[in-house]
Design a binder for these strands. Structure first.
Length: 134
DNA sequence: GCCAACGTTGGC
DNA sequence: GCCAACGTTGGC
C-alpha cells in the first residue's frame, strides 16, 4: 500500500464537497510528474486531501477506488484521472505550519515541491500526520 | 540542446 | 497583491 497527498483549492473542490458527493474523479492534472504519480496509484492506496491557498491544511484522508484512466476533460491528450472516495475527515486539520515545524516531516515532497499537486507520502510521514489530525 | 521569456502555482 | 519557484515554450 502506498500513500499520497492530493491538493485542491477548496473554492474549486473541497473535502466537504467530496463528503457530499461520496466519490469523485480527480481530473484536471496537467503536470507530468503529477500524472505519473496518479498512474502509480493502486486501488486501496490512501491519500491526504490538502487545501491549498485557502486553509493550507490537510483536512482528511481519501482512498483510491479506481486506478488511472484517461482524463475525460483532456481530449486528444494523454492525461489521467483516478477515482477517490472520502475515508475520514480529520477532527483537527494538520496545517502547513504544523508540517513545517515537525522535524519528522521536513523531507516531505509537499515542502520540497510546493507546486506539485499530487505527491508521494512515506509510510512514516503518513502515520505521523494521521496521529496529528485524528 | 541551450536558455531567455513567459505562464502558473501557491505561500505570504 | 506580490513574488519565488518551477514548468513549458520557442528562438537560435
Amino acid at each position: 500500500m502506498n500513500y499520497w497527498l492530493m491538493k485542491s483549492e477548496p473554492f474549486k473542490y473541497s473535502f466537504d464537497q467530496l463528503l457530499k458527493d461520496k466519490k469523485t474523479l480527480w481530473d484536471g492534472v496537467r503536470n507530468f510528474q503529477a500524472r505519473n504519480n496518479l498512474r502509480a496509484m493502486r486501488k486501496g492506496d490512501q491519500a491526504f486531501f490538502y487545501h491549498s491557498n485557502e486553509g493550507k491544511e490537510i483536512v482528511g484522508i481519501v482512498e483510491i477506488v479506481k486506478e488511472a484512466y484517461p482524463d475525460p476533460t483532456a481530449k486528444d491528450e494523454d492525461w489521467s484521472v483516478v477515482d477517490i472516495k472520502p475515508i475520514k475527515k480529520f477532527s483537527s486539520p494538520v496545517t502547513l505550519i504544523d508540517i513545517k515545524s515537525a522535524s519528522t516531516l521536513r523531507n516531505m515532497a509537499l515542502l520540497k515541491q510546493s507546486r506539485l499537486s499530487v505527491s508521494p507520502v512515506t509510510k512514516s510521514e503518513f502515520e505521523f500526520i494521521y496521529k496529528m489530525g485524528d
